[in-house]
Simulated scan of single mutants.
Amino acid sequence: MVFEQYLEEKNINAEMFLWDNPKHFAELKKIFNEMHPDGFTAQKKFLINQLRRKYMLKQFA
């Protein structure tokens, strides 16, 4: 799984996040690539929730 796909599964708009804060995006991507996605979720749970609120992926029904 790639980081961008992971963000999409967590309802986070990866493009918006990358455009708004490329340095933070790159840091998290590096950490994500070094560990299992479940471990990343457990370690960064509160951060993921903050990112989701800020960069919500728009869902169309």
Results as ranks from 00 to 15, higher is better:
Val2His: 11
Glu4Thr: 02
Phe17Asp: 00
Lys54Ala: 15
Asn49Leu: 13
Thr41Asn: 08
Leu51Ile: 05
Met56Ser: 13
Leu7Pro: 02
Glu27Ser: 09
Arg53Gln: 08
Phe46Pro: 00
Leu51Met: 10
Glu34Phe: 06
Arg53Asp: 09
Asn11Cys: 02
Asp38Pro: 01
Phe32Gly: 03
Leu18Lys: 10
Phe40Cys: 07
Gly39His: 03
Met56Gly: 11
Phe60Glu: 13
Phe17Asn: 02
Glu34Arg: 13
Leu7Met: 12
Val2Arg: 04
Leu18Val: 07
Asp38Val: 04
Met1Tyr: 07
Glu34Asn: 10
Lys58Ile: 15
Asn13Tyr: 06
Phe60Asp: 11
Phe60Tyr: 14
Leu47Asp: 03
Lys44Ile: 08
His24Ala: 08
Ala42Val: 05
Glu34Lys: 10
Asn21Leu: 04
Leu47Pro: 05
Trp19Val: 04
Trp19His: 07
Asp38Phe: 09
Ala61Asn: 13
His24Cys: 04
Met1Lys: 07
Ala42Phe: 05
Phe40Gly: 01
Ala42Met: 08
Val2Ser: 15
Pro37Thr: 04
Asn33Met: 09
Asn13Asp: 14
Met16Ala: 11
Ile12Arg: 10
Ala61Arg: 15
Tyr55Met: 12
Glu15Cys: 00
Met1Thr: 01
Asp20Ser: 06
Pro37Gly: 04
Gln50Asp: 11
Asn11Glu: 07
Ile31Tyr: 12
Phe17Val: 00
Leu51Gly: 00
Ile48Leu: 15
